[in-house]
Structures are given as structure tokens and as C-alpha cells.
């Protein structure tokens, strides 16, 4: 897996060298083309998790960006209209993430999507306490955080 990653980086660097000038978009294009070439020739190597992992990370990034834009617009709407439509509350979300890195990633992503803000984590690191700005249904919100953010993070990291 790390072998394929190194080879992909090498292909991207080679693409930049052929291109003749060094910038980020050239490197990204080289990485994408190298990834495609590795994917086409994947029967040649032993079975690997690399492709699934890269697509999971990309899916997490895409979901996160989309969530960031949509929910920022919702907060923006509450700020610029004269009445406050928000219905705040603090809920506890049970965590499946175990290691420090996973918990850090989940807490940071929850904090960065507007409408939810990580306040605290319980002493045994099982429950994440989240302040939610538009809370209509507690169970639905819990499910959204677990299925939406945590599951994707675990898929991308593990």
C-alpha cells in the first residue's frame, strides 16, 4: 500500500518534470494521471487497500465541503433575518472512534460544520457532547452525526 503511494508520488513528480514548470495544479494533474495508470494496471500487483482508501478520503473531503457550504448558508440565513429561528440544544453522541487521532478528527469535523459545535468529551472517551443550533429531533441529529461524519472518517482512516 505505501509502495503504491510512493510510486504514485513518483509518477506525479515525473509528470511535473516532463511539464517543465513546477506548480500545484501540474502536480495534482500528474497525481490523478498516475493514479489512473496504476488503477488500470492493478492486476499486476498483489491485492491492496490503496485504491479503496484514496476514494474514501476523497469522498470524505467532498462530503465535508458540501456540508460546510450548505450549513454555513443556514447559519447565514439565521444571522441576516431579523427573527431568530434557531432551536439550540446540547446532545451526547456515543462514539465508535477509539484512538486519539480518530477522536480528534471527528471532533474537529463536527466543530467545523456550522450548526454543530463540540463542547466536551466524557471521561471514558465514549460520548461526545455537541451543541446543535437547529435541533428538531434528537435521535435524527445523533444518527446524522454518526452516519454522516463519524462513519466516513472511520472508513477513511482505518
Amino acid at each position: 500500500m505505501s509502495n503504491l503511494f510512493l510510486m504514485n508520488l513518483f509518477l506525479a513528480a515525473g509528470f511535473c518534470a516532463v511539464l517543465g514548470h513546477l506548480n500545484v495544479s501540474g502536480f495534482l494533474a500528474g497525481y490523478a494521471i498516475g493514479y489512473l495508470a496504476l488503477w488500470i494496471t492493478r492486476p499486476l500487483y498483489e491485492p491492496t487497500l490503496y485504491f479503496a482508501k484514496v476514494s474514501n478520503i476523497l469522498r470524505l473531503l467532498g462530503y465535508f465541503t458540501w456540508q460546510l457550504i450548505v450549513s454555513n448558508l443556514r447559519v447565514l440565513w439565521d444571522v441576516i433575518t431579523p427573527t431568530h429561528i434557531s432551536k439550540p440544544g446540547i446532545i451526547g453522541v456515543p462514539l465508535d472512534a477509539k484512538s486519539d487521532f480518530e477522536i480528534m478528527l471527528v471532533a474537529n469535523l463536527v466543530s467545523l460544520t456550522p450548526g454543530t459545535l463540540t463542547l466536551d468529551i466524557s471521561a471514558d472517551r465514549k460520548i461526545l457532547y455537541v451543541h446543535v443550533m437547529f435541533l428538531d429531533d434528537v435521535e435524527a441529529m445523533r444518527l446524522q452525526i454518526k452516519k454522516g461524519i463519524e462513519q466516513r472518517v472511520l472508513e477513511a482512516v482505518r
Binding site: V75, D78, V79, S86, S111, L117, H131
Partner: peptide, 22 residues
Amino acid sequence: IASLGMLRLPDTIIRMHAATKA
């Protein structure tokens, strides 16, 4: 919008929603 929310929203934690993320 972030600083407008900082001024207008009703309590400290809700204000932080607008301030830190936007």
C-alpha cells in the same frame, strides 16, 4: 456575516457558531 452574527446572536455558545466557523 461572521462578525454580524457575533453581534446579533443571542448567547455565547451560539455566537461561537457564527464566529469561529464562518
